[in-house]
Design a protein around this nucleic acid. Structure first.
Length: 118
RNA sequence: CGAGUCGACCGGGCGGUCGCGUCGGUGUUCCUCCGGGAGCAUCGCCGAGGAACGUCCGGACUCCACAGAGCAGGGUGGUUGCUAACGGCAACCCGGGGUGACCCGCGGGAAAGUGCCACAGAGAAGAGACCGCCGGCCUCGUGCCGGUAAGGGUGAAACGGUGGGGUAAGAGCCCACCAGCACCCCGGGCGACCGGGGUGGCUCGGUAAACCCCACCCGGAGCAAGGCCAAGCAAGGCCACCGCCGCGAGGCGGGGGCCGGCGCAGGCAUUCGAGGGCUGCUCGCCCGAGUCUGCGGGUAGGCCGCAAGAGCAUGUCGGCAACGGCACGCCUAGAUGGAUGACCGCCGCCGGUGGCCGCAGGGCCGCCGCGCACAAAAUCCGGCGUACAGGUCGACUCGUCCG
RNA sequence: GGUCCUGUGGAGCAGUUGGAGUGCUCGCCGCCCUGUCAAGGCGGAGGUCGCGGGUUCAAGUCCCGUCAGGACCG
């Protein structure tokens, strides 16, 4: 799980990450990553978007909690001030914990690697 | 043993590692107006449901000054009770279903009035003459006039049923029995209603989940209610001290100090009262000196409300029951991009499969499985409705067999 | 938290005093027309009226419950 300080709490943070960040998708999740944030923020922070198309309230809660648990160790590798938004797709409702973690890793490396642009 | 009815309940368990949220303790860092506050670490307690769901009803609570009257509008509809209240629940009544335990019913009024009843049929609601039956007339015909609702046919429904008398033919026209209706009397029941007797006229269709009538109920909005602080638009605001008030966030008053200098346009008013409360109308009442409309500008932060309650468990008493009284015990989630997750071990259940045992129902031992339902608080309660793998307990009915 | 709307052939819609599931546009099938295709003409098929109950002689229509989709308000 994530502590409250490591989560995105404001609508403006979500908008900044989704609009300004780099995006990479897999079959279960889509990742928005915004790295160059003003240096005042202490740690990297993450937020989750699980829409109603994923399932009812129980499955949405389960997907979000699994994603939080998966994001927690990976958040330490990201530089300070990074904003991360993980959006769950409908396929994530039936995915296992392992495939969810594999997709999240793949999407994160894909979003971080192409730093050669501009 | 088989088939079934009703009610109550559980809805995976135990342990370990790493995490999250509220609250409390400890330590530490920072800030401080010295009251405290914030962050981090660590320890401990607690941490979704029987439906948390749908939002179909009813309340508590808050604001609208009080929560007023009539009309309109909406809702409910056997009776009596229970309840804070209800469209809920219980018992009973009536009607229907079942061999039975039991189940189902928006179950007031059609004799206050209006509307509708397609097609078919002569006729569809104060009756009516198509065929038929009977009588009369003559121009003797596939004729005209009259009587007749017993028969035929149509329809979901045709103005009581059977038998007899009666008649030209018939008809409640008369009579007996039956069914139904209205009124009266007696008995039982708090009541819905039930049982019995008498009189009347013979007779009255259905539909109110069509308008309507009757009885009863309903003021409106909703915790995003509502309140406080900060910031900002703005034009007034900010700061500490003392006293007082508030459940609380906090506020009020006093003297003192500091900063700042009056968005735009239009309408109607200033006690003979604009405008508003009161969302539709009328009355009545209240607030009232500014208010209304449009444009422009600002605001997405924090706190209180916010969890001890029509509360739960046990016992006992009253009541057929729903439920209520008393005693004792317990404290049981409070998030706000929204806290319960991940992994492991053992057991349980389910499905598949293999072996052994048994005449059989089945039992025992293994292996496999993304297997184990439905579905998650958001102010809080009481109901209703709906979804749900599997399981437990109790009461009762019918059938068969044995004693 | 509150207030509403929609569900009818494959698609989009109409459907009133409740009375045969009736209609429109596109699509589909067959035939005609054409050297061929399109357009056009003629004919045809295709329906649990979202689902389950109820009222009524009779329900797409009225009532209740339920499911799915969608919209609005602060």
């Amino acid at each position: 799980m994530l502590a409250a300080a490591q989560r995105l709490r404001r609508s403006s943070d979500f908008a900044a990450a989704v609009r300004g960040g780099r995006r990479a998708g897999r079959s279960t999740v889509v990742v928005h990553l915004l790295i160059d944030e003003p240096a005042q923020a202490s740690t990297a922070r993450a937020g989750f978007v699980v829409s109603k198309s994923v399932g009812n309230a129980v499955t949405r809660n389960r997907v979000r909690r699994r994603l939080r648990h998966l994001v927690r160790p990976r958040l330490a590798d990201l530089p300070d001030g990074t904003l991360l938004v993980v959006r769950a797709l409908p396929a994530s409702a039936s995915a296992s914990f392992e495939t969810l973690g594999a997709d999240l890793d793949a999407a994160l490396t894909a979003a971080r690697s192409p730093r050669r642009r501009r």
